[in-house]
Design a protein around this nucleic acid. Structure first.
Lengths: 211, 211, 211, 211
DNA sequence: TATGAATGAGGATTCATTCAT
DNA sequence: CATGAATGAATCCTCATTCAT
């Protein structure tokens, strides 16, 4: 029913990002978004099914573009290491360039309801897949440890990227996020590297804890 | 004003966890929590200032116990590696033993409003500090790379722990979370290890991307 | 302003009947009627002043035709009894032949607002007049009791006709409405007949009720 | 969930009748009803599930009392004719005594939606049954024509009663409704009588009713 | 004449919190 | 200490109507 294209569609999404970043999710009424987008309240509903749909569409639209740009950049370089570096760099760069979007995706969208988060989940999976493809390539090229579950490595990579951006937003973006590209790259590449001759010598003892 | 002790105080917190885990954050009205705790609605307000205070107190209480248990277990072992292992093990174990709490902290509480999340943030910092102390120790013992920012390593460790638990909850806890202790340990220890002679040879080119 | 003639005028009225019969009064938006009539929303307003005007015009148009047909049929027969029979027969027949119109006039239009029902009332009066003319004739011919108020007899006749059709519609038109022509005719003719010499012997006591 | 008893329950119903009679159904907001009943908007929802439920409950409550009073009065007299007379008398009297209720049931409630009218239908059936019981008795006592369908006679009786009251309301209650008891009685009794060889000799006396 | 995208006023309902008992 | 009935502010969405094309 809702027409998901056109100038106003994008105007409403951009307005929603601004309003939510400024006022927080729970204080972003439809009326506020409409006013920011310079359309009538009712016009919102020509382009979105309901308020939740604005948020889901917002995330879907921005995240798709995001993933697409990361994928393109990753294709421009050849080695696994370079691709990983591009991933981290692009991830941080995009949020650094759009602080409002960073606030919305890292903070405000997480307090939305189950339906929204499920709508978001679908889009997020595409990003997860992109990362998993990289991990797969790393294992094939014998750069990454082949014994570790791909999904787990993806979670590790995504977890550190996400946590790093969230911390940066929480600290009011007071430092340069892009300055963390190299150390994060180092942490990740070190963590997943297959260094051949090395061995894990630590004997894991069973925990004595009784909770 | 609110008396934050007593049998009913804890009954209300436990009721809140059950209700939120079952119904989701946005469908957990004060009346439902009161009914589950077998007290009157008004009684809630003898023990908590407002609804947000229930959630913040809930997180504070549970997280403090959580951090305390982790700290105690970490003190039982000596080496940095063992301590790290205990941290990961305890982190996963506590959520594995209390699925309701896992749902609440990993999913539902994240959709609360800014005030609650700030209240939570204060408590979370204690956990962050615990991790940072471990990192500091690792650097002093020359087990961890000394050139990487402590806070960044903490973010990496916390990020992967958090993302791993969240993914496990999102997958309806269908697999054994404790089975991930060892691979996660491996990823982390590899990532932060100072292996001496190695060198990073990859030349980072500036990204040509134009966003 | 509104041009109340033309092909589209009638197309819109017919569309309105279909849409209202199918969806119910409160779920029959202008857009739906326009779509059914294969015109644009705005076109509606070239032919009707507003939405209410569609409904009033609908009723007026259909009811005028209705009354006219009844009148013509009644003129074809001579006796008062025959005319009464024709009235009942035509009343039932027209609704039996147009179920959608029956639903709209007996059910849906009654839940319209005061203005519409007043607009309808004007048209209904013509039907009332037709019935009253019949009653007048009956009295003149000394077939009907002359002492009963004409308007009351008309109400009685209209009441039973209307209630009979409404009940039939409410029962999903599961039985043959025309099968009721004869018994209804009998009830009415019996009720209004002047049998001359008769006397009422029943003594009405004052009611003892205290409400 | 909604508690359908108590002082406020009845206060809200009485307020709803006044407000709807005065403003019309579509201009009777919940806030207006609450104000008239001297309760808060939210209090309405402690006693009623939703706005429709107010109307259904209103009709159910009033109609049940109504039917019960009619039934009681009918039991006080013995003959079928007397019972019929009481039915007509009580029907008119109750509306004559409560003009607001008359407006609501005859006019405003008919423009409510399908759900409400279905809720009303259940209650209305009890009245229909009462009338049908009378008709059944009349046939057994050989006062009414045994060949006419009971339901049809009931429709005829209800139809004329309902139409008479509706017409009276539409004419702004400018004349004495109780003055119509006797002529309506006459119309009905004549219509349904099995006279065999007998003849009706009833002299219409002027109504003595003074409301 | 005809279109249909845009408008914006209007209302039922929820639920955290209070306070008389 | 405890109760729970009562409160009332706050908001998403619908849809009749307009008007630039």
């Amino acid at each position: 029913m809702a027409k998901k294209t056109g100038e106003k569609y994008h105007a409403i999404i951009d307005a929603a990002i601004k309003v939510i970043a400024k006022n927080g999710y729970h204080n972003s009424q439809v009326t506020k978004i409409a006013r920011m987008a310079k359309v009538a309240d009712g016009t919102i509903y020509l382009y979105f099914d309901n308020k939740d749909d604005i948020l889901i569409s917002l995330f879907r639209t921005k995240m798709s573009e995001f993933v697409e740009r990361v994928r393109q950049e990753m294709e421009l370089v050849k080695t696994v290491e370079e691709k990983l570096y591009q991933l981290i760099y692009m991830h941080f760069k995009q949020f650094a360039l759009d602080p409002d979007l960073a606030i919305v995706t890292q903070i405000e969208l997480r307090q939305s309801n189950r339906e929204i988060r499920e709508g978001i989940g679908v889009t997020l999976k595409k990003y997860h897949q992109l990362i998993e493809e990289l991990v797969q390539l790393g294992i094939e090229k014998e750069k990454f440890h082949k014994k570790i579950d791909i999904r787990l490595i993806r979670q590790m990579i995504f977890g550190i990227l996400d946590e790093t951006v969230t911390s940066w937003v929480m600290k009011d973006m007071k430092y340069d996020l892009l300055g963390l590209v190299q150390p994060v790259y180092f942490l990740v590449i070190n963590g997943v590297s297959d260094k051949g001759e090395e061995e894990v010598t630590y004997e894991f003892k069973e925990s004595k804890s009784r909770i």
